[in-house]
Every structure is written in structure tokens, then in C-alpha cells.
């Protein structure tokens, strides 16, 4: 069976409010904390949607668009950098599972 890469896997996810250009991010990450005091940058390894990435210089970046609301980063971050919430049903992004 053909293996899928992550973007192909995420392409199968049904996101809400996809047509809206302006969405309210449901997770706010203070990447200053990630890039100054965080000793482990755990989120960049554990996020199943790769919303947290580390660039070649070792700097952490975050994007909320691919988030599938699994909660992994909420538990992984013990540095106070991740302000996690569920997406607003009206103006947030977020998922509706077809199978779940």
C-alpha cells in the first residue's frame, strides 16, 4: 500500500470554516519562550500535525492551520508557552471527524 506523507494525511481531514479567510487561532504560542528558555522544544517532535517546526537555526515556529485538536502540545509544553483552547465553532478552524 502506498504510504502517505503528512500533508497528504492532513488533506483527508475535514476542517471547519475552511472557506473563511479570517480565522481566530485557538492556540496561541509564545515562541519567545520556546526560543529562549525552553530546554527541550518538545512540541516540535510530538505534534502529529507538525504545527510546531524547528528551522535550521533551531528556532521554533508555529502555525495553527493544520491543527487537529489532539491536545498533545497542551500536555507536552510545560514551559507556559502554549495557550490552548478549543476553536470557536463560528470563527475558529478545527476539525469535524468523518470517522473519529
Amino acid at each position: 500500500m502506498k504510504l502517505l506523507n503528512l500533508s497528504e494525511q492532513l488533506g483527508l481531514v475535514s476542517y471547519r470554516n475552511q472557506a473563511k479567510s479570517e480565522i481566530k487561532p485557538h492556540i496561541i504560542v509564545d515562541t519567545d519562550i520556546c526560543n529562549t528558555t525552553c530546554p527541550h522544544k518538545c512540541t516540535t517532535w510530538v505534534c502529529p500535525a507538525n504545527c510546531y517546526t524547528m528551522d535550521d537555526a533551531g528556532k521554533v515556529h508555529f502555525q495553527v492551520e493544520d491543527c487537529i485538536e489532539c491536545g498533545t502540545c497542551m500536555y507536552a509544553c510545560d514551559q507556559g508557552a502554549v495557550d490552548w483552547n478549543y476553536p470557536d465553532p463560528e470563527i475558529g478552524r478545527g476539525v469535524t471527524w468523518n470517522f473519529g
Binding site: 500500500m1 502517505l4 481531514v13 487537529i68 489532539c70 491536545g71 470517522f99
Partner: peptide, 26 residues
């Protein structure tokens, strides 16, 4: 996950299948 799927036993079990959803949960 892709590593797991390449094991010969798993590859035989999922042969011909079509992935229809990817999800996660802590």
C-alpha cells in the same frame, strides 16, 4: 506510523487499502 506500516506483516494486512482519515488524540 509509516515505519510500522512497512513491517511485512502489517504491509500484508493493509495491502490494497485506501487511507480515508488521519487523526490523533493525546
Amino acid at each position: 506510523l509509516n515505519h510500522f506500516k512497512q513491517h511485512p506483516t502489517i504491509a500484508d494486512a493493509i495491502k490494497g487499502g485506501e487511507i480515508v482519515e488521519y487523526s490523533a488524540h493525546v
